[in-house]
């Protein structure tokens, strides 16, 4: 077993662009689900609108990069309103179903043949990250001792973590305010909040929109780090992995999504590397009758699934959750 690369690879993955993308998506979900109690299963849609807003605006219409970002934000806000108007009056589970369906509809539409001249069909849009590439201050590979990144990756990671830091600051500022208090009240019992004279529907809409905007940033991140957006990036499992990140770190905690993203992607890589090495070579550590090297990359998801189940059973508040809240079962 070669522990060096296993450790290095995992650390790189834990802070890499993918982890950043999921972290940002989970920060949005934290506002939806963690603080407001809105079960949004369509975060992938907000990410898709962000990614495509940026990609299509730059590639198809030649819009300057910064303006394209604004288009992405605008598109997300419109999506939030369109999605929220009919669904925010529904009960939580109905909201979940509708948002899930909406996300699939949007993905299908984005990849549709009719829109191919503008959105590129199944191939999506490529090569819209030139502006980011041009601004890259790193001229050579960045070596941080234990981990190292190619120049563009290092630049994207730097931007990504700055975005996460800023997002966490915004969430923290908002959730200590009376506005955040109303959201938490809605999560606990919206009728009680309504009875106190708060426009619950309006607050839910604001929360949906704000969380969606963080999803949009995640979409930018995904698009820029890969220099491409394709419809298949935005499947429903994207949303569910973002939920895993949130629950792993702890919902309704500012740093929950950050811890969750680092852990989830670190763990996936540790497991992947471990099983990969343990099943490779002429005389593998794990005998082939248990698993062969082709199966090893799938086994990590099985192990991760079990780990998540155990976490939910024994520590349902997540890594960062408040234990005091656990003692409460009554509503």
């Amino acid at each position: 077993m070669d522990w060096g690369p296993l450790f290095t690879n995992s650390l790189e993955a834990a802070i890499g662009p993918v982890a950043i993308t999921y972290c940002l998506a989970a920060i949005g979900l934290n506002i939806h689900f963690g603080y407001t109690g809105l079960l949004n299963f369509g975060q992938a849609a907000f990410m898709a609108i962000g990614g495509y807003g940026l990609g299509a605006a730059v590639v198809t219409f030649g819009v300057p990069f910064v303006l394209a970002l604004l288009i992405g934000f605008g598109g997300t806000a419109v999506l939030a309103v369109l999605l929220g108007l009919p669904t925010l009056r529904l009960r939580t589970d109905y909201l979940a179903i509708t948002t899930l369906a909406a996300a699939e509809i949007i993905r299908q539409v984005l990849g549709s043949l009719t829109l191919e001249p503008w959105l590129g069909g199944k191939d999506g849009r490529q090569g819209f990250a030139a502006t980011v590439r041009d601004l890259n201050p790193f001229s050579g590979p960045v070596d941080l001792g234990i981990v190292g990144f190619r120049p563009f990756d290092a630049w994207v990671i730097l931007i990504g973590w700055l975005a996460i830091a800023l997002s966490c600051l915004v969430v923290w500022l908002l959730m200590r305010s009376p506005w955040g208090r109303v959201l938490k009240g809605i999560r606990e019992d919206e009728d009680a909040v309504r009875a106190l004279g708060k426009n619950v529907y309006g607050y839910k809409m604001q929360a949906l929109m704000l969380g969606g905007l963080f999803g949009c940033v995640a979409g930018f991140m995904m698009g820029v780090s890969r220099s491409s957006v394709v419809p298949d990036n935005f499947q429903t499992d994207l949303t569910f992995f973002a939920f895993c990140v949130l629950l792993l770190g702890g919902a309704a905690r500012v740093f929950g999504p950050v811890v969750g993203a680092i852990l989830l992607w670190g763990m996936l890589n540790v497991l992947g590397n471990f099983f990969g090495q343990a099943t490779s070579g002429p005389n593998p550590i794990i005998p082939t009758w248990i698993m062969d090297s082709n199966q090893s990359s799938l086994v990590r998801f099985i192990v991760l699934g079990i780990a998540l189940m155990l976490l939910m059973i024994y520590r349902p508040q997540g890594i960062f959750g408040d234990k005091r809240e656990l003692a409460i079962h009554a509503r």
């Binding site: 500022l173 908002l174 009376p178 506005w179 208090r181 009240g185 999560r187 606990e188 106190l196």
Partner: peptide, 25 residues
Amino acid sequence: LAKLTVLENMRLGATQQRGERLVNA
């Protein structure tokens, strides 16, 4: 509101709070 403190429950009752508007929060 079970997962809010007693004090937060009370504060929530006050109307016309500036901090309850997103722009000020």
